[in-house]
Amino acid sequence: MDGDGGGAYGSHTAEDVFRDFRARRAGMIKALTTDVEKFYQQCDPEKENLCLYGLPNETWEVTLPAEEVPPELPEPALGINFARDGMEGKDWLALVAVHSDAWLLAVAFYFGARFGFDKESRRRLFNMINNLPTIYEVVTGITKKQSKEKTSNSSSKSKSSSKILRQGDQLTKAPKISPPKEDEESGTDEEEDEEEHENTLCGACGDNYANDEFWICCDVCESWFHGKCVKITPARAEHIKQYKCPSCSTNKRIRT
């Protein structure tokens, strides 16, 4: 595992550390959402104390803690596997998510101290981190609920029951996949619609909607996802009658 997150000691910026933070965060979100069944299986309570690590290449790893003292980086929560079968699957994932958020902050500010960040650099780093939803918010669906509340409170027109795919500046129609963008009667309505799209967060990685990305909506939980995050292409989506996201597909199989 690349523990340095930025190479040897030297000149590093808050932006460098934030890129490392974001990559590790993406890996841990994958473990707790799109790769949740694989993650669940690896956290066998019969094994020794295990930790969940987010890696700088946007992947994750469940392994034993580092042996050296002190470790190269702050260590994640130890023994996450022991609680797996003692609580509801969703509650266990939420608990791991909380500890993952704490670990990511510890790693980021460890680098900040190690690279000698001043007060302004630390503030800039925290602000960049704080602009992202936490892993806990992504895993528990809090960001989805907030997005729905913004949608329901907006003055945009009511949407039809059919789902759509978002790609580029247009909303591409597809069976069972979110509401087509209606013709707006005023510039204000168009601006509100654009703002609503920008406030939409991916249920897998937690990032905002972007015009140049393909999105798909789950028919069960009605959450939006980047196609790349759930490995769905526009061509494949055209043939899906009812799309279920990874969480909705696997939650039924995760039981105490």
Rank of each mutant, 00 (worst) to 15 (best):
229 C>H: 06
122 R>W: 01
84 R>N: 09
78 L>Q: 09
252 K>A: 08
202 C>A: 12
82 F>T: 13
242 Q>S: 11
198 E>L: 11
36 V>N: 04
47 K>F: 08
29 I>Q: 11
20 D>I: 01
133 P>Q: 08
137 E>F: 03
172 T>W: 10
158 S>D: 15
254 I>P: 00
135 I>W: 01
165 L>N: 06
94 A>Y: 04
213 E>L: 15
85 D>S: 12
36 V>P: 00
250 T>V: 13
129 I>H: 07
15 E>K: 10
232 I>S: 01
90 K>C: 01
221 C>E: 11
20 D>N: 09
117 F>H: 12
120 E>H: 08
137 E>L: 03
149 E>V: 15
159 K>E: 14
30 K>R: 15
122 R>E: 05
85 D>Y: 04
170 Q>I: 07
201 L>P: 00
44 D>N: 15
101 D>H: 06
16 D>Q: 03
62 V>W: 04
69 V>K: 10
162 S>Q: 13
75 E>D: 07
58 E>Y: 04
149 E>N: 12
239 H>F: 09
244 K>N: 08
161 S>Q: 14
138 V>G: 03
114 R>D: 03
115 F>C: 01
91 D>F: 05
48 E>A: 14
247 S>Q: 06
199 N>W: 12
58 E>A: 15
61 E>K: 08
250 T>A: 05
90 K>S: 12
193 D>E: 13
91 D>T: 03
224 W>I: 03
106 A>Y: 01
28 M>Y: 00
212 D>F: 15
155 S>R: 15
232 I>Q: 02
68 E>F: 01
237 A>S: 08
192 E>H: 10
28 M>N: 00
193 D>F: 10
193 D>N: 10
69 V>P: 00
249 S>G: 03
97 A>R: 07
32 L>K: 05
27 G>M: 01
249 S>P: 00
124 R>E: 14
103 W>D: 04
1 M>G: 04
29 I>D: 02
73 L>M: 13
230 V>C: 12
210 A>C: 13
163 K>T: 11
60 W>D: 01
57 N>H: 11
129 I>R: 07
10 G>D: 03
180 P>C: 03
48 E>N: 11
11 S>W: 04
101 D>A: 07
131 N>K: 14
243 Y>E: 02
55 L>C: 10
76 P>E: 05
199 N>A: 13
116 G>N: 12
226 H>C: 07
29 I>C: 10
247 S>K: 09
141 G>E: 13
93 L>W: 03
190 E>A: 12
252 K>N: 05
99 H>L: 11
114 R>Y: 05
122 R>T: 02
9 Y>N: 02
125 L>K: 06
146 Q>W: 11
217 C>T: 15
236 R>P: 00
236 R>K: 14
120 E>A: 14
94 A>Q: 07
248 C>M: 06
58 E>C: 13
190 E>R: 15
162 S>D: 12
